[in-house]
Amino acid sequence: MRLKRYIRVLGIFVRASISAQLEYRVNFAVNLFGSLLLAGGTLLGITILYSDGTPLGGWSYRESIVVVGLFTLVQGYIGAFLYPNLNKIGEEVRQGTMDFNLLKPVDAQFLISSRNINVFRLTDALVGAGLVIWAASGLENASSIGALLGLCLIVTALTIVYAVWFMLSMTAFWFVKVGNVTELFNGFFRAGAFPVSALPGWVRLVFTFLIPVAFVTTVPAEAIIGRWNAGSVLGSGVAAVLLLGVSRWFWTYAISKYTSASS
């Protein structure tokens, strides 16, 4: 019943988001064009990088494309769901319109995480998914079990990205302007375009434990190409649950310290 209501609200947000974006017809077209351009650029980049067919850090051409595909997919997810919502938190705190979210009888964290959806960025996600499927279909070790496990790991990866991004945005309750904080995350996340296990040992440690980039692209990719290990799979699940829990706690704490903006 409760879940049904949230799905209903989400549906209305999606429809309202699409309607709002359709109001600006030129922007609609430009956005769509931009997405295609970005996807094309990514493809071109990989092709050039691997044009002579040499494997990089133990990852073959096709294996790396799985990682790049996942990276593109996650970027689409960030662009479609996280960026349009979470990056507005600072502005809303600054102007005091955050009040309206806190006044609504639905979970306010859900509300501020789902109100706006940039549907055009979903084309990135689709292109990413397409790349993964295409690359994996040509690999010998790819199996349906691996694909299923990969799918689960993608879900945990998206959860991890959400939790981290949400917590960074949440600092807006104190610092108000935090656009730069999420840019920092973006910077680190660019490392996710490459297989983390191909990097030197200490970098690998940083990107696994300090900034969990490895869990976002490399770990799911390893499952899909049939090279997973139980440790990373378990680690990914634990990291997702833990980070989501901490983000929830942080949220509760942040709103207890909320000072609103005087009118």
Partner: peptide, 10 residues
């Protein structure tokens, strides 16, 4: 009176 909750573009 000084803040609005209505969706601006719709």
């Amino acid at each position: 009176g000084q803040k609005q909750q209505l969706l601006w573009d719709l």
